[in-house]
């Protein structure tokens, strides 16, 4: 072999050996263990601590909340969607309770092109105006349960018992006084519910309580059917001194349940259109003071001033009680 070739080969071999040595020295132990990568990086990545903990982590301390939440329609929305990741809680302090629910809830429930039809969606401005969602909805059990009871009363039988009501509510269910409510054309399910509440004592009134206690269950049904069947067309109210326009603006907050013009969307809730303004104002004040108990109404009436109440009452009493397609302007 020529000398210069041998020298060259030797040089290559030395370099090769050095390269192998360097590779052996610089390659970390786990590199080729499973492939062309550092095997130890896998357990390193797997060792990171989870940030989101799942409801199982919340359950032991918040059992009551978890039970309520898991039995209702938000059960697929885990705790940490609204309250944030639970890593480090409770050691590092409390998790946030969202206050701006209008911003939070609309992330999912604002009506938007692209959202599937099955998703409950609202037109935010029309649904509740500037109200916060939690004024009416419990986020752990968001559906407002208003299953309208089926009223199977006999209107004719009810008419016979209605004599006792006529003194205050009018023979045709249209009250002569601003203080007492019109009953004509009111939703039967609501009438039966409220009369039943007076009868059971859930709701108290100096006059109504003794009268309702004298009624049988069938009477309640019959009376509800009777008054619901009467025409409310005669219930026209004089214009009041309060600001109807201001009331209309406030009434957006009521529209989700009571309808934009006070014609309720669900028969379990009362119609407000054409109702006596004095009665409406008193009822709102009673809800605000906690004298009438209803979780939804307590929430929405809490922030109303006396002037707001007067304006709202004036607005609703000025509306036509007949269902008006398209909504009639006051």
């Amino acid at each position: 072999m020529p000398r210069h070739i041998a020298r060259l080969i030797a040089l290559i071999v030395v370099f090769g050996a050095l390269a192998l040595l360097a590779k052996w020295y610089f390659t970390v132990d786990s590199f080729y263990e499973y492939g062309h990568y550092r095997a130890n990086s896998v357990p390193e990545i797997a060792a990171q601590a989870p940030v989101f903990q799942t409801p199982r982590y919340c359950q032991p301390c918040h059992a009551e909340r978890v039970a309520l939440w898991s039995a209702n329609s938000h059960k697929t929305v885990i705790c940490e969607v609204c309250h944030g990741p639970a890593q480090g809680h409770p050691a590092n302090g409390k998790l946030p309770i969202p206050t701006d629910t209008k911003k939070l809830c609309t992330l999912c429930h604002e009506a938007m092109p692209g959202r599937p039809r099955a998703q409950p969606q609202i037109d935010v401005a029309r649904h509740a105006g500037d109200q916060q969602c939690i004024a009416c909805h419990n986020p752990h059990a968001p559906k407002i349960v208003a299953a309208a009871a089926q009223v199977a009363g006999d209107a004719a039988a009810g008419k016979k018992r209605a004599g006792a009501c006529a003194g205050c509510h009018g023979a045709q269910g249209v009250s002569a006084s601003d203080t007492w409510p019109n009953l004509a054309g009111q939703n039967a399910a609501y009438l039966a519910k409220i009369l039943g509440a007076y009868k059971s004592g859930d709701q108290k009134d100096m006059v109504m309580t003794p009268m309702a206690q004298g009624l049988g269950d069938a009477d309640v049904q019959n009376l509800a059917a009777h008054f619901a069947g009467l025409s409310c067309a005669a219930a026209r109210n004089e214009s009041s001194a309060a600001d109807v326009a201001a009331g209309k603006a406030l009434a957006k907050n009521c529209a989700a349940c009571h309808g934009e013009t006070g014609v309720a969307t669900n028969p379990a809730w009362p119609k407000l259109a054409g109702q006596k303004a004095g009665y409406l104002a008193n009822a709102l004040k009673a809800f605000r003071a906690g004298l009438r108990r209803d979780p939804t109404m307590a929430g929405v009436s809490r922030g109303l001033s006396d002037a707001d109440i007067a304006n709202l009452a004036a607005y609703f009493s000025a509306q036509s009680c007949a269902p008006a397609p398209g909504g009639r302007a006051p």
Binding site: I45, A46, A47, Q48, A49, P50, V51, F52, T54, H74, T76, V77, I78, E80, V81, C108, P116, Q119
Partner: peptide, 18 residues
Amino acid sequence: YHRITKGLQPACVEICPV
């Protein structure tokens, strides 16, 4: 990977409300 190797779902799957 740090969740699925502990028997948990990925965070996005866990959090998805629908």
